[in-house]
Design a protein around this nucleic acid. Structure first.
Length: 278
DNA sequence: CCTAACTCCTGCATGC
DNA sequence: TGCATGCAGGAGTTAG
């Protein structure tokens, strides 16, 4: 599911509902739901207070009044739902965190729900400003330290195709398959073009298109195709209706009208317009 | 240093 | 209806 706009929607929802609350108890229900490198069991979070909710790229973490963080990655199908404790358990509930205090009294639980179990939660110490598992992840383009010129130069040295480079979280974080395809379409760049062959202006245009499309998606509450992406209230986003190419194989290009193509490479689907994107 | 291939899962759509 | 196949928003590991 979730790329930067969806994770940011979840982050903002969590920040609104759980900041300042105390975790009174916590449990995990599935062995793969907890990151193996976690330094402590989920149950040990009991008694800690949530100070803030942070994000870099697709990684989320809660800062606590302790020298470690509760980190989460949603993988392909993870959800973090804020619910009343009386809500009946979800089918794929992998962990739960009971809360007390704070401003909103009715929603006193965070549930980690994940059908495919590619997502995880974990307890981690910090490496500088971010938890250990986030340390190798590049800045995302919404962080104020994000250095556009540096990223452009790095991309332009690469000999691989531009699409897998956009998906590489160690170069620029937050972009997944949907927004990579949408950004390439907006910038009129073919996904298989080699990075080295792109001009500085083209790479700059591409990253700015990625920023624009993700910003618009955040305002729409993210992209939801099915039941796999929900915000913390269990609601779908509505950016799906604004997608130009992702999932639009055979549909007319919104710019030139020719049919959107889908190809598979680097183990993923790519959707693009063969006329607009050379 | 880099890249490609493979892996971890469940559930749904499709085709025979 | 049943079964096999392919496909899905991610990222870590390994081999080369």
């Amino acid at each position: 599911m979730p790329e930067l706009p969806e994770v940011e929607t979840v982050r903002a929802g969590l920040a609104k509902y759980v900041t300042g609350k105390k975790i009174t108890s916590a449990q995990a229900f599935h062995p793969r739901a907890v990151k193996p490198s976690s330094i402590a069991p989920i149950t040990s979070l009991a008694g800690s207070r949530i100070k803030s909710v942070q994000r870099r790229g697709k990684f989320l973490w809660l800062t606590l009044d302790r020298p470690y963080a509760l980190v989460a990655h949603l993988g392909m199908s993870g959800q973090l739902l804020v619910t009343p404790t009386t809500t009946s358990p979800h089918k794929h509930m992998r962990a739960r965190f009971m809360l007390s205090g704070g401003l909103s009294r009715s929603n006193n639980e965070i549930r980690f729900v994940d059908q495919r179990t590619f997502g995880w939660v974990g307890v981690e110490e910090y490496a500088g400003d971010v938890p250990i598992s986030v340390a190798h992840i590049a800045l995302d383009p919404f962080e104020k330290e994000f250095d556009l010129a540096k990223v452009i130069n790095r991309i332009r040295k690469r000999k691989s195709a531009i699409k897998p480079t956009l998906l590489n979280q160690e170069i620029i974080s937050g972009i997944g398959n949907i927004y990579a395809d949408e950004a390439l379409w907006r910038a009129k760049i073919h996904p298989e073009i080699v990075c080295e062959d792109l001009s500085k202006a083209e790479v700059k245009r591409l990253i700015n298109c990625a920023i624009d499309v993700m910003q618009e998606a955040i305002l729409a509450g993210g992209t939801s195709f099915d039941e796999q992406y929900k915000n913390v209230n269990g609601e779908s986003g509505y950016f799906e209706r604004s997608l130009a190419v992702y999932g639009q194989e055979g549909e007319p290009c919104p710019r030139c009208g020719s049919a959107i193509a889908r190809i598979a490479f680097a183990n993923r689907s790519s959707h693009f317009c063969q006329r607009c994107q050379r």
